[in-house]
């Protein structure tokens, strides 16, 4: 029983590794500039803040920048998965692996994350040097929050990809979702800046609101009580559950 489980886990890991290599690492080596475009907008924002000398917002811009880089690279799952399904038709080959679609999709999402790494490294170094975030605990929270965001947004991206009938349907969605998940909710600014309390609750419809707030808390920008911290970790789990459920129902449908 235990051996069977171990075999199954090894096969799943191999599937994820293969998918990551084929759809992430190898294409990235062919064109590393892919990692450049998602960091341009937060970089430009950072530049404006520096030019205008608004230094108190810089820490938020750095955290928001990391978050938006992850969002931009994760939401591309929608076009990548749709491209693989509609043009390459390679997903039907990967369904016929022992792990099926899930490790294929996880590998695809990990592949997208590879494109985010250079941008995250740049913003991470800036956060360390400019803001002085140097506690391991803070970085562990960052890692958890960014990983959670990556997982949820990738699932959203995959869900959207299943709705597409033509790859061109999807070209518009990446920028829209990047904007809707990175720039509208309190990712580049604290939740308290939203003037109406009702709107603050509404902001939690975005999975990036709790994770960005956790990062802001870990960087010492906002004060978080323990109950709030627990709630902030639980909220993305609810997001993940709902999206997973939608995805599960959606993937069952074509059968």
């Amino acid at each position: 029983m235990r051996r069977e489980l171990a075999d199954r886990l090894i096969t799943l890991a191999k599937s994820i590794y293969a998918s990551t290599m084929l759809f992430g690492v190898i294409p990235f080596k062919q064109n590393p500039f892919w990692s450049l475009s998602p960091m341009l907008a937060p970089m430009a924002f950072l530049l404006f803040l520096s030019v205008y000398g608004i230094s108190e917002i810089v820490p938020y811009a750095l955290i928001g920048g990391m978050m938006s880089i992850v969002v931009a690279n994760s939401i591309t799952m929608e076009s990548d998965a749709a491209f693989n399904r509609l043009i390459l038709k390679i997903d039907s080959m990967f369904v016929l692996t022992r792990g099926g679609l899930i490790p294929y999709a996880v590998g695809l999402a990990l592949g997208n994350l590879i494109n985010a790494l250079p941008g995250l490294a740049v913003f991470g170094v800036l956060l360390w040097t400019l803001v002085g975030v140097n506690q391991i605990w803070s970085w562990m929270v960052f890692l958890g929050a960014l990983t959670t965001t990556w997982a949820i947004v990738s699932m959203i991206g995959y869900y959207i990809s299943t709705l597409a009938r033509d790859i061109r349907d999807l070209w518009v969605y990446s920028p829209i979702f990047t904007g809707a998940l990175s720039y509208l909710p309190p990712v580049f600014y604290p939740l308290e800046r939203i003037p109406w309390p009702e709107l603050r609750y509404l902001a939690f419809l975005s999975p990036t609101t709790p994770t960005a707030r956790l990062m802001q808390g870990a960087a010492g920008l906002v004060g978080l009580s323990w109950p709030e911290t627990v709630l902030l970790w639980l909220t993305p789990l609810i997001h993940a559950f709902v999206i997973f459920l939608l995805l599960h129902l959606r993937l069952r449908r074509p059968l």
């Binding site: 599937s15 590794y17 084929l22 064109n31 390459l88 038709k89 080959m93 990967f94 369904v95 016929l96």
Partner: peptide, 30 residues
């Protein structure tokens, strides 16, 4: 599924990967 394989109609490999990568990593995924 683990005992069958398929070549989908009008599918094509990724332009950014090599024939070796496609075959090798597909077998690893299997």
């Amino acid at each position: 599924r683990r005992r069958i394989a398929v070549v989908p109609q009008e599918g094509r490999p990724s332009n950014l990967s090599t024939p070796w990568a496609h075959v090798y990593y597909y077998l690893i995924a299997r």
